[in-house]
Amino acid sequence: MALSLPIDPAANDLLNRSPLALLLGMVLDQQIPLEKAFSSPYVLAQRLGHEPTAEELAGYDREALVTLFATPPALHRFPKAMAERVQQVCRILVERYGGDPAGLWVDARTGAELLSRIADLPGFGRQKAQIFLALLGKRYDVRPAGWQAAAGGYGEPDAYRSVADITDPDSLARVRSYKQEMKAAAKARGAG
């Protein structure tokens, strides 16, 4: 079952057919609503007039890329930093995977190996890497041996913890509720 977010259907379609768009959505999913993060690869493609490749973004003029990200409505609340991060991720895709974003996962033999590859990308800490691993496993059938264990709680079936679990409005509401509970618990621990 593919990802289905409450965003422009064309943006969902791009996420479901373009490994680069999916990865960039995850890169941008930081300190902004997930709908914004996962819509931004589509908006970027519209601004460019075509779907970019990893090679194109890796070699894109830095300032011109920042301008694309910053043009209202900005693709992220931190357009400069995120344009640079996207470029860094694309450079790694070119250097390590021949520019093929799916190269990140297609030949990973184990979930631990895939988690390590994802965590090596700029901006991916352990939690974010586990969420992306769960997203690949649950929505795109990328399931090397041990993928669920490597994804931690995010890999559990019928969990509603992250973007990996969103398939409809009900699951989105459940994920949002879980995140609110976690924020409240963290705030309570901090106050204690």
Rank of each mutant, 00 (worst) to 15 (best):
L3C: 04
L5Q: 06
P6W: 06
P6R: 03
P9E: 15
P9L: 09
A11K: 02
A11P: 06
A11W: 07
N12P: 02
L14C: 08
L15S: 07
R17A: 15
P19F: 10
A21W: 06
L24D: 03
M26T: 10
L28M: 08
D29A: 09
Q30M: 08
Q31D: 09
I32L: 13
I32H: 10
P33R: 10
P33H: 15
L34A: 15
A37E: 10
F38M: 00
Y42H: 14
A45W: 11
Q46D: 12
G49Q: 08
H50G: 03
L57R: 05
A58H: 06
Y60H: 13
Y60K: 10
D61Y: 05
D61P: 03
A64S: 14
V66F: 15
L68I: 01
F69N: 04
A70W: 04
T71L: 15
P73T: 12
A74V: 03
L75D: 01
H76T: 06
H76R: 06
A83V: 04
E84G: 01
E84L: 12
V89Q: 08
V89I: 09
C90H: 10
C90G: 07
C90W: 12
R91A: 01
I92N: 02
L93W: 14
V94L: 06
E95T: 01
Y97Q: 08
D100C: 03
D100L: 09
P101N: 12
P101I: 14
L104T: 03
L104F: 13
A108P: 00
T110G: 00
A112Y: 06
L114I: 00
L114S: 01
L115P: 05
L115M: 04
L115I: 02
I118S: 01
A119E: 14
P122I: 14
G123F: 14
G125E: 04
R126A: 13
K128I: 09
L135Q: 04
K138T: 08
K138C: 11
R139I: 05
D141I: 01
D141F: 08
V142F: 09
R143Q: 15
R143I: 11
Q148R: 14
A150E: 05
A151H: 03
G152K: 10
Y154L: 00
G155Q: 08
G155T: 03
G155A: 01
D158T: 06
S162N: 08
S162Q: 09
A164E: 05
D165I: 05
T167M: 10
T167Y: 13
T167L: 09
D168R: 04
D168K: 03
L172Q: 12
L172K: 11
R174A: 15
R176F: 07
S177V: 02
Y178L: 07
M182W: 15
M182I: 11
K183I: 08
A184F: 07
A185R: 13
K187I: 11
K187S: 15
G190K: 08
A191C: 07
G192W: 13
